[in-house]
Nucleic acid binder design. Structure first.
Length: 378
DNA sequence: GGTTGCGATTTCACCACAATATCTA
DNA sequence: GATAGATATTGTGGTGAAATCGCAA
């Protein structure tokens, strides 16, 4: 079921704004987030194709679906075949990016279609990912008036045609060199945003792309990386909290804690390979992050853990685990994701404020927790 | 069946202060 | 009506206490 835009309540919601906790159609997204400098900084991402409620965290190029953590697990975690799908993390965006920038962010470079006149065949265009074909309307003609053609094909198709990507100036949209809108700006196009949203409309269902195409496309886009690569490259910043909480909830649901076990054994279902994570030293220091990140990579990359017995006499333990899994799934269903963050700036400040027993401490006062340095003043 | 005890889980108030909103000149 | 300055209000997250729940005796 498609979600309607929280702003106009008419268009189909496509984008999720974390700052506003709002689902917006692209038209309203642009309208709302071009209002002032602050709203321009709101971080947005695609809406989950599975639940249409939460922001998409990953993209499965095989199924051409954008999924939140929960739906990703539901979809890929329970199927040995689907678990092989290599998913890519979504990059968020802010401001009012051009379609080309969005395409780059989401691993689908956009090229205007007068490339067709430069030699891209209809057949080649048909091979473009379905989520790009929305730029062609139902009767096959493209949107926009003369010079504002908006049929898009994949970058690979353009490359195959030997033609360079078109810029907005080619379409008579922007002034030329130095223009703010490289590629093109949505504001400058006589293009129905409803149509524009069709870019993403066909993310439901299977793509006609082959897995080779997908890998090639993903590899050619520096903004999208596999989970393991991304985790390793994230630097010292905080880990992706949904992933960590997922692991934490799994551990909690299974009755596991750092105090009653020394390691967590993750077993890959299809391959049988396993990863043992030392847990005895978990105490909230930075090493926890590394281990949890590794664990989350295991969960999300391809191989869901098997909770089955590891020894013949562990039947009771298995039963307890299954029970815990059921409880976990029940709780997962009713988890609340509608926490409203109205002001990102305040959240950012709260995130770095020093605390005394969880309370905000006065500047210069002794503190027992510094979110930035994770140090104590005494 | 009603009561009590206890552990596990959930809910909520607290804090400081920058950001934001509102009022006044 | 537009602007500047002063004042009032809001919102943010981790922690711990209190409240609630579930179960057994």
């Amino acid at each position: 079921m498609d979600a309607s835009c929280d702003f106009c309540e008419e268009g189909r919601a496509t984008v999720y704004c974390r700052a506003d906790s709002a689902r917006l159609c692209l038209s309203c997204d642009r309208h709302v987030h071009s209002a002032n400098a602050l709203s321009l900084r709101h971080v947005r991402t695609l809406l989950c194709d599975g639940c249409n409620l939460r922001p998409a965290a990953v993209r499965c190029p095989v199924e051409n679906l954008a999924l939140c953590q929960s739906c990703d697990w539901d979809s890929h975690g329970n199927s040995p075949i689907k678990s092989q799908h290599r998913r890519h993390a979504f990059d968020c965006f802010s401001g009012c990016p051009s379609a080309a920038e969005l395409g780059s962010l989401w691993g689908c470079d956009l090229v205007p279609s007068s490339v067709e006149s430069r030699g891209v065949s209809t057949a080649t265009r048909a091979a473009a990912p379905r989520n790009l074909q929305g730029f062609v309307n139902s009767n096959g003609s493209s949107y926009g008036g003369p010079g504002k053609v908006a049929t898009f094909v994949s970058m690979s198709a353009a490359a195959a045609a030997g033609g360079p990507p078109l810029l907005a100036k080619d379409l008579g949209i922007c002034g030329g060199e130095g223009d703010l809108c490289e590629g093109f700006s949505m504001a400058d196009i006589d293009l129905s945003f409803d149509n524009y949203e069709d870019i993403f409309s066909s993310t439901q269902g299977l793509s006609s792309w082959s897995s080779n195409d997908i890998e090639a496309a993903a590899g050619g886009c520096p903004q999208t990386q596999g989970y393991k690569g991304e985790s390793a490259g994230q630097g010292p910043g905080p880990p992706p909290s949904p992933e960590m909480s997922e692991v934490g909830m799994m551990m909690g649901a299974a009755g596991l804690s750092s105090s009653n076990m020394e390691s967590l054994q993750l077993v890959s279902q299809p391959t049988g390979s396993s990863l043992s994570l030392p847990l005895s030293g978990l105490s909230g220091d930075s090493s926890d992050y590394l281990e949890c990140t590794a664990a989350s990579s295991m969960f999300l990359n391809a191989d869901p853990p098997s909770w089955g017995p590891t020894s013949p006499d562990s039947g009771a333990l298995t039963q307890a685990r299954n029970s815990a899994m059921l409880r976990y799934k029940e709780k997962k269903k009713i988890r609340k994701f509608d926490k409203k963050i109205r002001y990102e700036s305040r959240k950012a400040r709260a995130d770095i404020r020093k605390r005394v027993k969880g309370r905000f401490g006065k500047a210069g006062q002794a503190y027992d927790y510094d979110p930035v340095g994770t140090t104590r003043s005494f």
